[in-house]
Design a protein around this nucleic acid. Structure first.
Lengths: 250, 250
DNA sequence: CCTGGTCGTTAACATATGTTGGTCGGTCGC
DNA sequence: GCGACCGACCAACATATGTTAACGACCAGG
């Protein structure tokens, strides 16, 4: 299952490529220095590994440096709901600090590189770095909003629209991270993932995905997806222009 | 729509009946004193009033003192998804501070009494009261978890189970607030509300609600709902025992 | 080279849920 | 008292989505 390998080579936070992106808040020198100390190291995780498990305490806190993860609930009979995809810059493990134990689980979707933070020094943030403390609340609020959008999607949209909305949302997120190349994004999701994301059966996902591809709005080859006509896709998805929100990066 | 009436008589935070409940974290004397100053006053709101509107800044922040609200998304064509019900002790308006503008709306479901807080002094929390700052993050994390549960519910459960899970969840919440009397709770929800909460049509809610009542697990007369057999209801809802989480109260 | 596994696909069929439209009982304003 | 409106209910019907089962492509392991 989980294979967590500590890494030898790590990137100093000052040079972090993610921080350069305009969607992330810029940290002051003092804050950066603290984050640097707060950070224990980096971790490489294989695709398909459970990073955090519901019901447990996490020994660490993480930020995704590269790769995709997702958080999910598992019911006793095996049904799974994926709450959201987690992309570079997303913070993992807040629930451990706040609620005492993780309520959901987190799994890697691709090979992933994580920045690892010390739980011991967590309190220092609130004591000494109000802006960073604010960022944590901010991050939680962003996470909440993401789930809200997913809920509205699943609760209100028919499957085709639902899938289209997922693609648009993902595309915009990745665009903010500069992970779109010529309209093409990575598509590491199996149809099982999509099904659990959208609350559909895999068979139906297969149908709807085919319909989406046949419509010509997107192309799909292997693990890459190309958005041919974003405005048209957003139109059929019935999503408003909504820009990706600016976010904190711990 | 919204009728916001300032009140003459307000309750000092020290004597707040909510704070006495064990599900809320206990504040220190200094914290209580600050909250008292942070609080501007109280507000009485009629049932069915919009308290916050998506896309706007809120002039104030609120905590529900009494009554029910809900937060929701509205789509252009009128579809509505209710993300969660808000009960006494729930904090309203965090998104305004964090994301710059509300992404969802909040409406009162019953007549509601709100504690009103000053946005100007919001930053003071992070500067001077780390525990309260922590509480804000904590509150956001709780809110996020609530939406996650709703998403799993809507995405994975068939309608009957879905409705049963809603009732169990609500019952437990209200129980923690001492708002259950002889197994009976307030039920101010129209079938339209339930439909928008669960992602169903009103017609189907009518069917399923009837089925639930016919099953004998709950009784429903007017605006009161009685849970006849909670364990059996939880069983049919396929929800785990899950205790209501301890929460902060600002 | 077989083998078993995962992943995607398709068809036939079953069913949960949505839609339309109508009724009926309250309640509120006049 | 009347009419308008809203909330709940019901029946008939339409359809979106789920289920089961089978098949082929691909890939990793023995």
């Amino acid at each position: 299952m989980a294979r967590l390998e500590p890494l030898s080579t790590t990137t100093p936070c000052q040079n972090c490529a993610l921080r350069a992106l305009p969607i992330f808040r810029c940290l002051s020198g003092a804050e950066l220095a603290f984050v640097e100390k707060f950070k224990i190291g980096e971790l490489e995780v294989q695709a398909g590994s459970d990073i955090l498990l519901a019901g447990t305490h996490s020994a660490h806190l993480f930020t995704i440096f590269g790769g995709w993860c997702f958080r999910y609930d598992l019911m006793e009979d095996g049904r799974r709901q994926i709450h959201s995809l987690l992309l570079p810059g997303d913070f993992i493990g807040l629930q451990t600090e706040m609620l005492g134990t993780m309520q959901h689980s987190v799994q890697s979707l691709t090979d992933v590189r994580l920045c690892v933070f010390s739980r011991e020094r967590f309190w220092t943030i609130y004591e000494s770095f109000p802006e960073l403390a604010f960022d944590l609340t901010w991050a939680a609020a962003c996470g909440e909003r993401t789930v809200e959008v997913a809920l509205s999607n699943v609760g209100q949209r028919p499957s085709f629209e639902r899938l289209a909305a997922l693609v648009v949302h993902l595309y915009r997120q990745l665009d903010g991270l500069r992970l779109v190349k010529d309209g093409t994004i990575l598509w590491p999701l199996t149809q099982q993932h999509v099904a659990d994301l959208l609350g559909l059966s895999t068979v139906h996902v297969s149908r709807v995905l085919r319909r989406l591809v046949d419509s010509g709005l997107v192309r799909l080859d292997g693990r890459r997806l190309t958005v041919v006509d974003l405005p048209a896709l957003a139109e059929v998805a019935a999503v408003d222009p909504e820009k990706p929100l600016r976010r904190p990066l711990i």
